[in-house]
Design a protein around this nucleic acid. Structure first.
Lengths: 147, 147
DNA sequence: ATAACATTGGTAATATGTTGTCATTATGAC
DNA sequence: GTCATAATGACAACATATTACCAATGTTAT
């Protein structure tokens, strides 16, 4: 009896993550559309805000699990759109630090307020324990593949 | 006291799902690369196999949570590559039924074997209960946004 | 200091996915 | 049967992401 029933469940989880990824992008796009912000751009802003300090492009990429090229592209268009600002990096001449512009800060504030309400509403029918377990499992999964 | 601590955890879960989505695509691409199959194409094949019968493009899209256009594009190239085959639909002249070709069946068989081992290995450090709870939460989340 | 190596930015090609639009074919109400 | 409506396929424009490559800049070992 080497078989377990865990493998198939793991597979179902993977498929559900694929589906949910798309659905969550939709949700984010909807919430951000009044401000011209897409899910991808919102996540860039979030990575910077959550870090509590300006970040370089590779640092943002690392945080989000994306390639630096993908982040670079977004950062460039978001700078052009005026929601991000650059700051010279005292420790590195080439790698500029990225922060939110004043406009970006304002937009992010409104988005974040919306998002907090959204998350609270979404979690009404889920228990704290269920959510904690889920987050713990997802983190373990990410660690498993993160290298 | 209207505040709960569930919202922030829900938000963390959403961010983890974004990251895991990318990591899982990588895993699938790696496993499929010996057969020229990417994650996206593998999932199309999986949707058909798991249905147990040929499906139309919109049916595949519905199953996977994608738009029919995205699926149509993949189905067309996979037909050109010879891994999918068409079958006239007795109940609908316009919507052809899609099934795996013989080559597709053979490739899928090998992929599936690999994937079963992979899922079992991945779930070693997770309990059945953790996995069940996680799947349940993810499904509830998907239902929440599925309309 | 210099040489080897790693990091960063930039660019291009490709894959995946969305929205929007149009024409065609099915379906259903009457 | 006819007409309004829905579903399907086809196509285009765009957004997001990857890999691959090159040039420029930093870092480290010697």
């Amino acid at each position: 009896m080497t078989k377990t029933k865990k493998g198939p469940v793991f597979t179902e989880i993977a498929l559900e993550i694929f589906k949910l990824g798309g659905l969550l992008v939709n949700e984010g796009d909807l919430m951000g559309s009044p401000y011209g912000i897409t899910s991808a751009r919102w996540k860039i802003m979030g990575a910077i805000v959550r870090a509590g300090k300006p970040l370089t492009v590779p640092q943002i990429a690392k945080t989000m699990g994306l390639t630096r090229q993908a982040v670079q592209r977004l950062v460039d268009v978001m700078y052009a759109d005026g929601v991000l600002a650059f700051q010279t990096n005292p420790e590195h001449k080439r790698a500029k630090l990225i922060k939110l512009s004043e406009v970006g800060e304002e937009i992010y504030g409104k988005l974040d307020k919306k998002q907090v309400d959204w998350a609270q509403t979404c979690s009404i029918h889920l228990t704290k324990q269920e959510l904690d377990t889920t987050l713990s499992v997802l983190k373990k999964m990410a660690d498993m593949f993160d290298h």
